[in-house]
Write a protein that binds this DNA or RNA. Structure first.
Lengths: 182, 182
DNA sequence: ACCTGAACACCGTTCAAGT
DNA sequence: ACCTGAACACCGTTCAAGT
């Protein structure tokens, strides 16, 4: 991140702030975490946060991008598994941040920052799912619809925190009925 | 609601408050609507709201129950239609309150009031869907899983505000793959 | 029983002033 | 360029006082 020595200090501060925000947002929730708490955790004054970020939403977007990047590096390990295993892995991963997912959905209409992130994330996830379905011989017109259904089921399982066993039954049924084999 | 004359005044006030809250919550969103705005719209002082309700969440629950009751009376008109028509009707109905649905999901973990309402609502919806699936000859063990999938797709279509045409394609595909005919 | 003015603690954000 | 103390407008909620 730091391009040269002059940026190192900045990078360290930003790291401290985003680490604090990530911990607090995921453990206590976004709305329950005040800017004061983030600042205190990062060891700066509250208004210092506004030197690095435009507002609280922008910190949330940074945290989300961090979590996505962390997740992407881990995905390579299951990239060759069958689709239902991949989805179970995704469910487990997203389960750790499911309160943030709800937060994003509830703010998507009122914050342009967050809407932009949300739409982009769904675009990427959608394209990935469609490509997976195409290699499994699904009709191109249908693949787009199936991808949406898979996404909705993943989000539904997360936001209603089903037990892992139930998750697995539903995912397997979904894959079987929609893809035949996978 | 008013059991006798002595309750009439109370019923009128409650009606004014809940009418104001329903309008403001659905049009501007729950978080963007302050207690002061609700009070002003209802023609009372802000703290008067706390005579009738324990807190803001409790007003939200009252509003939700109102909307559900309104919806239920309308449902009788499509009760005999095929399942995909019923779901499209539900989507259209819930689409008018989809910001409130997101609000409920984001508060479900932090508010016992709202969690209670949410769980109860899903229980009722689930039982209804299962009964519909059973009469269409779906295996009992599977019906429960299918009902969950249908619910998740409905919520997904709502929270990502798909255009009606896309909604219809996805619902029809879902019904076809999961129920054969309906 | 019902209603309110005034206050409370907290929130996200801004600004003028410092280095 | 970076950081902060102090203030601002707003929020949900409470309390003592009225009728």
């Amino acid at each position: 991140m730091a391009k040269n020595n002059r940026d190192i200090d900045r990078a360290v501060k930003v790291e401290a702030i985003e680490l604090a925000a990530t911990t607090l947002f995921t453990e206590q929730g976004y709305e329950s975490t005040s800017m004061a708490k983030v600042a205190q955790h990062a060891g700066v004054a509250t208004n210092t946060l506004y030197w690095y970020y435009k507002n609280k939403d922008e910190i949330l977007v940074s945290v989300l991008n961090r979590l996505v990047n962390e997740g992407l590096t881990g995905f390579s390990l299951v990239a060759t598994e069958p689709l239902n295993k991949q989805i179970m892995w995704l469910l487990n991963k997203l389960g750790q941040v499911n309160t943030l997912i709800s937060t994003v959905h509830s703010k998507v209409e009122h914050s342009a920052e967050i809407r932009k992130w949300h739409d982009q994330f769904h675009l990427i996830l959608d394209q990935f799912l469609i490509s997976q379905l195409l290699t499994r011989g699904i009709d191109k017109k249908q693949a787009s619809l199936e991808a949406a259904i898979v996404t909705f089921v993943v989000e539904g399982l997360l936001s209603h925190s089903y037990p892992k066993q139930q998750q697995e039954l539903i995912v397997n049924l979904l894959i079987k009925e929609h893809l035949g084999n996978a």
